[in-house]
Computed example of a mutant assay.
Amino acid sequence: MDHLRAASVAWYVTGRFYVTPDGATQDLGYFLHLQGIQGELFTGEPSEQTAWFTFRSDPFKARPVTNGDLSIGLDTVGGFTLYLQRPPSASFDKPDSFSHGLRIASFRRVSLVMGTTLSTPGGTQDLMSLNVFTAALTWSQEFEFHGVKYDLARLLPHGITQWGDASATPLTPVPSGFEKVFAFVGSAIAVGK
């Protein structure tokens, strides 16, 4: 398949943000939809444990800015990697499991990422977080899935822009080495030339 048209849906993902006691964050998760890839993306009911395609970011730290009931986090440029798991074996209880399998592509955010958290008046309770970023494809390799060969350099040669929504309610249990975990979803579109 040729590359996706600019501004067309590239993927839908869901995952979790993992925050360490010193404030470093990483996100990881799995693909609900990956445009251009044919066949079922899960071996059973959709979950991280049945997902063929996963991702994991490099750790990053956000610089805080406050404006009324908005808390804004400015994240530095960073990268994330996509994996094809054979067989699917990821678990949110084991964050390292999202970076197992065949590494199929790496992306790097091209500028600062802005994330915003909306709080109740007085900042007593966080309600929801939003973020947006653009990432360029920096590396990929051909892979086979359901008998068809793919390369994200052909599907997404110019990268993606992704919008994300995250819950402000921490999840439990929290894996060892982390202080907080939050669920999120992301929707990405293909970047044009």
Rank of each mutant, 00 (worst) to 15 (best):
M1E: 11
H3I: 04
S8E: 08
A10D: 05
W11P: 01
Y12G: 01
V13N: 00
V13M: 06
V13G: 02
R16H: 13
F17K: 04
V19Y: 02
D22V: 13
A24P: 10
T25E: 08
Q26L: 12
G29Q: 06
G29I: 00
Y30I: 02
H33W: 11
L34D: 01
Q38F: 09
E40V: 08
F42I: 05
P46W: 01
E48R: 08
E48H: 09
Q49M: 04
T50Q: 05
W52F: 15
T54N: 07
F55Q: 08
K61N: 08
A62E: 10
A62N: 11
L70C: 03
L70Y: 08
S71R: 07
V77H: 10
G79D: 05
T81C: 14
T81P: 04
L82N: 04
L82Q: 09
Y83L: 12
Q85L: 12
Q85R: 07
R86Q: 15
R86L: 11
P88C: 13
K94G: 00
P95F: 07
S99K: 14
H100D: 15
R103M: 13
V110Y: 03
V110I: 15
V110H: 02
V110A: 04
M114W: 03
G115S: 15
T120N: 09
P121R: 04
G122I: 01
T124S: 06
Q125R: 12
Q125N: 11
Q125W: 14
L130K: 11
N131W: 04
V132Q: 15
A135R: 02
A135N: 06
A136D: 14
L137A: 01
S140Q: 04
Q141F: 13
E142A: 13
E142V: 15
F145K: 10
F145L: 06
V148F: 07
Y150Q: 00
Y150P: 01
A153L: 04
A153P: 00
A153E: 06
T161S: 14
Q162S: 12
W163K: 05
G164T: 11
D165M: 13
A168L: 03
T169H: 10
T169Y: 10
V174D: 02
G177H: 09
G192P: 01
